[in-house]
Simulated scan of single mutants.
Amino acid sequence: MTDDDGRIAVALVDDQPLFRSGIQMLIESQPDMRFCGGAANGQEAVELAAAQNPDVMLMDLRMPVLDGVAATRRIVEAAHHAGTDKPKIIALTTFNRDEAVVGAIRAGASGYLLKSAEPEFLLSAIRTVYSGYSVIAPGSVHDLFAHLARNPEPRQPDLQAIEVLSPRERDVFLLVAKGLANADIAEGMFLSEATVKSHVRTILAKLGVRTRIQLVAFAYEHRLLG
């Protein structure tokens, strides 16, 4: 939660004490942020989120007791049931092509970063996610999903996954999944940007995903991008 002077409350979950200490010092050096707690595993993360209600939580994906994907799912589901969108979760991973990243995003994470990210990039990502946007590690999120979606036995697109969408919504879905911004979609489809935003909200609701980055993961999982 933001405190009385409006600072962003940031929590950190990681099983390495030295890493936690370093990130805590970085957060506390920022005038617009405050560190509201650390946890060493996913179970502690769930408890920390409930007790402190942070604005943003940095979540390592590979931890003992309960991994980051499962912890993210529990925290996001608890927030959904409580009628809030906090905390925003940024998954942390050691390497870029980590299959756990897709699981974290599908579980509700607002994006992911490499643990080796530059301090300024990490701080910028926290502010970006707090503002309601997604973040990804440098490089293309599509490259990550395409790499993880490769299969030696090609599968047909799962068109049933989007049968709940109208034809127009399917067109918008595919353009969003390819990474186009609302303005570009509006221009290409001769629609207003407000209409595109409305379609995107409806698409997210119908598919049961909460963010555009989750929509990209959904598209790759169901082989809808070729």
Results as ranks from 00 to 15, higher is better:
M1G: 15
T2G: 00
D5A: 12
D5I: 00
R7E: 07
A9N: 05
A11H: 03
L12D: 05
V13Y: 07
D14V: 14
P17M: 08
P17V: 07
G22W: 05
M25K: 12
L26T: 15
L26Q: 11
I27E: 14
S29T: 08
S29C: 13
Q30P: 11
Q30H: 08
P31S: 12
D32T: 15
C36E: 06
G38K: 00
G42Q: 09
E44R: 07
A49N: 04
M57V: 01
P64I: 03
P64E: 10
V65I: 13
L66P: 01
G68I: 06
V69D: 08
A71S: 12
A71R: 05
R73I: 11
V76G: 12
V76L: 13
A78C: 00
A82I: 04
D85C: 05
K86H: 11
I89N: 04
L92Q: 12
T94S: 15
N96A: 15
R97K: 13
G103H: 05
I105N: 02
A109E: 09
A109D: 09
Y112F: 15
Y112L: 10
K115P: 15
A117R: 04
P119F: 13
E120G: 02
L122F: 02
S124W: 10
I126S: 03
V129R: 09
Y130N: 14
Y130T: 04
S131F: 04
Y133A: 13
A137Y: 05
S140A: 11
V141D: 15
D143F: 08
F145K: 05
A146E: 14
E153M: 09
P154K: 09
Q156V: 01
D158T: 02
D158P: 03
L159F: 12
A161N: 02
I162A: 00
V164K: 11
L165H: 10
P167H: 04
V172R: 02
A177H: 01
K178T: 10
A183M: 10
A186G: 08
G188H: 05
F190I: 13
T195N: 02
T195W: 01
V196T: 10
H199M: 06
R201D: 07
T202M: 11
I203F: 01
I203G: 01
A205H: 13
G208A: 11
G208D: 08
V209W: 03
R210F: 09
A217D: 08
A217C: 06
A219Q: 02
E221P: 00
H222D: 06
H222M: 04
H222K: 12
R223S: 09
R223A: 12
R223Y: 13
L224I: 00
